[in-house]
Design a protein around this nucleic acid. Structure first.
Lengths: 262, 262
DNA sequence: GAGTGGTCTAGACCACTGT
DNA sequence: CAGTGGTCTAGACCACTCC
């Protein structure tokens, strides 16, 4: 005999897939399900939890459980890199116009709330390896949050690392009050003579940690995309390492690869 | 007053992060935790579930709960596309040597168990849009599973779609018993005069469905990467659409983007 | 205040793992 | 068989939402 909570989850899942319950629809109250299936409250909740973990339903305390509606996605492409590189050498008036987030989301500069903070750290083993420097090298760690002014959760959590020694010839680059910097990191690097040649992006996925769920306002039953972006300069050295956490339910990464012709 | 299960989860999480409990270590039995925290079995289990959902612990029925050990990753790069394109024109002896999965995993051909099945379908609206053909166009749907012979779960779930009309001039391409085809899809397309010019890959993440968790042998507290790969031929038409489901806890996608020099 | 989901108890019994 | 986690009950009470 199958477990009761699985049978119940299967039955409700089938109703959702068959379209008896549509996105946005409210499920019967837990007490109603207790009666309908003749099982205890805890068992019913276990069944609903299965569906929640699958991202099929959304439980709201005091309101009810609802069939989840797919969210619109933010697209982040790798063609943005060429665009950002070009922008890094533009005159300041042009650089002020728009940033990468505006490009991804289609929103205006004024719709966005930006926050940055800097601090200096010594490279851990893991970071030192990623950046190709000795352990303990002084790094500038910069954390960024950008959000839509109408929402409370940022689009992503970004932490970027630069080697302090390679940028300190321009003291403005060590000063967080200069943010947001028109033209972004690659313009900043341009001011100290660094040109980016290629970008490597490593992508994995996992459930959010408690802190990430809190900060990105993620409900249970969602995942995060973890992206580590490594930028190499024209001499093959690592210029920047950025760790980005993106909500999986509203982000799509698009990578285009061009091939040599036969 | 904080919820009991959260306090308990916080305390255990802190012990794991502090290194009092190391990867692979067994947690105290649930009955022991009932005594230690003076809470009921159900409450203790709720706390452990929080940690499991975060991917921090791994519960094993009849054995115990353990601090999860990070798994070794399979890396899938976008440089594989250029490699695959080159391989598509090589002589058969060379094409027989190794495939893309061997390249990603570092395993030998003999370590891998391969399975393919074909069927013909009519394009749904969603698929027709993705392939740039009218709804209802006849497509060849091909599903692939490749696994390491020592493991029971495949590395990924792959479904590929081709427009039947554009490949039927070579009847071998409609015959699943010809799989595994040396040189893969791009060699198959080469036999009907199609050259691939660029590849677009769209990546998102979400919790696995029940079926995916079953087939990929994924424990609760993991995510899947969803990758849709669209291959364009030299005339800009869609040659192939492939949907790939990858286990998030053992897959890393690596995309390299080269930029134009200043 | 009525109706919803969330937390919790104290206990029973089941299912799996390893000796 | 002993020890582990998994399922389940019948009930109490709490916390949130909305009218």
């Amino acid at each position: 005999m199958a477990k009761a909570y699985e049978r119940i989850a299967d039955e409700l899942r089938a109703e959702i897939r068959a379209g008896q319950l549509n996105p946005g629809d409210q499920l019967p109250a837990e007490s109603a399900l207790v009666e309908r299936f003749g099982k205890s409250h805890v068992t019913i909740r276990e069944a609903l939890r299965v569906l929640q973990t699958e991202g099929l339903i959304d439980k709201q305390h005091g309101r009810g459980s609802f069939v989840r509606r797919p969210r619109t996605r933010v697209q982040r492409t790798n063609s943005r890199h060429q665009w950002e590189k070009g922008r890094a050498r533009e005159p300041e008036e042009q650089r002020l116009q728009t940033g990468a987030t505006e490009r991804d989301t289609g929103l205006e500069v004024n719709d966005l709330v930006f926050h940055a903070s800097y601090r200096e750290i010594k490279a851990s083993k893991e970071l030192a390896d990623a950046m190709g420097v000795p352990e303990g090298t002084v790094l500038l760690e910069r954390t960024y949050r950008t959000r839509y002014s109408a929402e409370r959760a940022p689009f992503s959590l970004v932490t970027s690392y630069l080697v302090r020694e390679r940028i300190e010839s321009n003291p403005d680059l060590l000063d967080e009050t200069k943010e947001p910097w028109p033209g972004g990191t690659w313009n900043q690097l341009h001011t100290v003579g660094i040109e980016i040649d290629r970008v490597e992006e490593r992508v994995t996925a996992r459930p959010p940690t408690a802190e990430e769920a809190e900060e990105l306002d993620l409900p249970p039953g969602t995942s995060v995309l973890i992206l580590r972006k490594t930028s190499y300069d024209t001499e093959g050295r690592v210029a920047d390492v950025s760790d980005v956490t993106l909500p999986g339910d509203r982000t799509e990464l698009l990578f285009t690869t061009h091939l040599e012709r036969w």
